[in-house]
Design a binder for these strands. Sequence first.
RNA 1: GGCUCUGUGGUCAAGCGGUUAAGACACCGCCCUUUCACGGCGGUCACCCGGGUUCGAAUCCCGGCAGAGUCACCA
Length: 483
Amino acid sequence: MSDSTMVRTRFAPSPTGFMHIGNLRTGLYSYLYARKHNGTFVLRIEDTDRERFVEGATEMIYSTLAKAKIDYDEGPEKDGGYGPYIQSERKELYKKYAEELVAMGKAYYCFCDKERLESLKDENGVRTYDKHCRYLSKEEIDAKLKSGAPYVIRFKVPDNVVSSYTDLVFGEISVATEDLEDIILLKSDGMPTYNFANVVDDHSMNITHILRGVEYLSTTPLYNLIYDAFGWQRPTYIHLSPIMKDAQRKLSKRYGDANFEDFVKRGFLPEAIVNYIALLGWCPKDNTEKMTMEEMIEKFDIDGISKSPSIFDETKMRWLNGEYFKEMPFEQYYEMAKPYIAKAELKGNYDTKEIAFLMQTRTEILDDIPEKIAFLDNFGDYDLEWYNHKKMKVDLEVAKKCIEAWLQEIPNTAWDEESIKASMGIAAEKAELKAGQVMFTVRLAMTGTQITPGGAVEMAIILGKEESVRRLNVSLEMINKAL
RNA sequence: GGCUCUGUGGUCAAGCGGUUAAGACACCGCCCUUUCACGGCGGUCACCCGGGUUCGAAUCCCGGCAGAGUCACCA
């Protein structure tokens, strides 16, 4: 692409709460596209809706982008000559442009009130504006304006034209203008509608490629008509299918659990979240799944963007997150895991570092840690059914023998991997059991947990000899009672 | 309801007129580990339906069906 240096994309979130991941993905793709083409990525805050404005939400946008490592070249506090980048600070622009359009005869004042508009509803409750004010005489308009009657400015959609454009993902989209309404550009309070503000901003910020949700796919012809009316160059569009909660419902803020910040709090790594959502609706040519931001930039291409909606799968994101932990240097994992180990509020005097060491390859999300190490403190009632292991040929009887055998041979001096392992082997041999049977049984008897962060030897070491023996006796008693 | 879009295993997805229809998650099994996990290997599971076009269709066309989006002085 010869004009690749000219690429300018933008991300334009509204400060209305937490950043949900569908939204973040749109920002990510805009970012990737800009970086891929050595373009400029701009952040614009669309805060014209005072009703939905949420305190602190703007800061949330900044912090989310920072954690996600999506850095913008232009934006609030980062002027690139196209500012201001906060929509509420650009008010004058819109009015000026709307009036310009009226002067050109491509927009008009409309004085219709709510009641009249309401009366236009059809049997389905769908309302279409009948263009009533489009045909007001000059005298009527002047008189109304002079009388101070409230008005809006509406766009004059050309009659009987088919407006088409080529979306880079969806291909050619055509809509007949008779299906388009004379939309409002400027509201009666002088503020622009979202649609109009968007067109004006994107044009005046010289945005060349617009990446946004598919919900705009069929209204884009209308946007284009506005560009045309001004004689502005139309941007290139890249519409993105939504991320769904299930086949029917879109992932939205209302479900609350789909926002970036919550995932981070639960122990998902920002880079894993970003990596995962990049894969929802996009697939690189070589099918790579685990990618760094740099790799994503390098591999990003419009061709790999899918047209159909994708359902968010937390299970897969958990898996990916776990992959990130596995390849992380231990010290880094240790620092991250510490607070979560502390969360378990273990009363025993355990080696935190040792716990972290055992947990690293067994962690999908940090939030799972407390639960997985809870057995260190909580030991007692567990299901004796767990001793029945068909393949290992263990049942309650065998379990009893295993525990008793090891108790006989338990190391008296050293309490380390070598001696513990050896003692288990000897115990098995003497009792004519398999070492695997002893280890399996003893691990269960010491932890009361089916899946533990380590084998029998590790569990014995971390619990300490005294506690290990105590628990073995408790388990033995439980088994004896059941037999 | 009008208009626009979408439709490959449970999920993410590759596929771009000729493939035994990839791969990943999940699930199941085996191996490794004398025990948990990790890891390795293997398995079950898919082209929405019906018509065309073509020697040949998951791929192109038409129709149905299903789902989504949109039709605000919200963004």
